[in-house]
């Protein structure tokens, strides 16, 4: 599959220069911008946006960290500095609606920015995909068939428990006509991948197991062909876990955006 984008990704600066406004801003996030695996998801979200013809834009180099990891690590100063700088940019561009590729960015912009002067309608990309499916703009045809494949979905904490979004990602998988299997700990009882609360950026404390191993073992119990994720940090933790369990030949860890793109042959 050609991963190269065969279209230009529009930036806010370009749109404004043309006197245009986007329907929605795609907030890529740091992982989506720099992490090689997450970049793939980022491009796939763009492919979906491009495919359905939504007028969208990204901030490009004008985007900066939302401040989420700083806030969870306890550095409220740095968080608010980042937040206020970002809000200034977003407000200057008169942004109304944002889609994010990361539950952490999603949570921060949706819940923590309004109190600092940045109020937007914020959705996660799995919600966008669900909306597009509901509106009939997106189907699961013309691409790879997932029919009958065993898929288990891992709830990201900041999407699930953090914001009560359990159905959208599952809806996006239901159209595949695949066999969805739930892990023992799922939805509001879902087990963290181990990366939240700034853990992504440090070694774990002393213990008898890594959290992602505990999670991947549970995921493997469902004997899936695909583990579906909706968060770049979960993606890293689960992929690492699969490699450590020597299962990367048998089980794929895929973001829901990637699955959608494959199913539609985009």
């Amino acid at each position: 599959m050609n991963e190269q984008l065969n279209f230009e990704v529009p930036t806010m600066a370009e749109l404004i220069a043309k006197g245009e406004e986007p329907e929605i801003l795609f907030w890529v996030g740091c992982a989506g911008s720099y992490d090689e695996r997450a970049q793939k998801t980022t491009r796939d979200i763009c492919k979906i946006l491009h495919h359905v013809g939504i007028k969208y834009a990204v901030l490009g180099t004008e985007e900066s960290c939302t401040g989420d990891p700083a806030k969870r690590a306890g550095n409220e100063f740095l968080f608010q500095m980042q937040a206020m700088t970002n809000i200034e940019v977003l407000n200057a561009y008169n942004i109304k609606k944002i889609v994010t590729g990361c539950p952490h960015c999603f949570n921060t912009i949706k819940n923590e920015y309004p109190g600092l002067g940045g109020t937007y309608e914020v959705i996660h990309h799995t919600q966008l995909i669900q909306d597009l499916i509901n509106d009939g703009k997106l189907k699961a045809e013309g691409g790879e068939s997932f029919k009958g494949k065993k898929i288990t979905y891992h709830d990201p904490c900041y999407l699930g428990r953090g914001n009560g979004i359990y159905e959208a990602p599952r809806k996006a998988l239901e159209v595949l006509d695949a066999q969805l299997v739930e892990m023992k700990r799922c939805k509001s009882n879902g087990l963290c991948c181990g990366a939240g609360g700034a853990q992504m950026f440090k070694e774990p404390e002393k213990g008898n197991k890594d959290i992602n191993i505990e999670r991947i073992e549970e995921a493997l119990e469902t004997q899936p062909q695909i583990i579906a994720a909706g968060c770049p940090f979960c993606m890293t933790m689960l992929s690492d876990g699969i490699k450590l369990k020597d299962q990367n030949e048998n089980v794929q860890v895929l973001d829901i955006a990637e699955i959608t793109v494959r199913a539609n042959g985009l």
């Binding site: 990704v9 911008s33 491009r43 763009c46 180099t61 900066s64 992504m200």
Partner: peptide, 16 residues
């Protein structure tokens, strides 16, 4: 750098 990793802000849009 405006990111939790040591990457240049100038490279932020390279994914495209």
């Amino acid at each position: 750098n405006g990111a939790p990793w040591k990457y240049s802000p100038a490279d932020r849009f390279n994914w495209a």
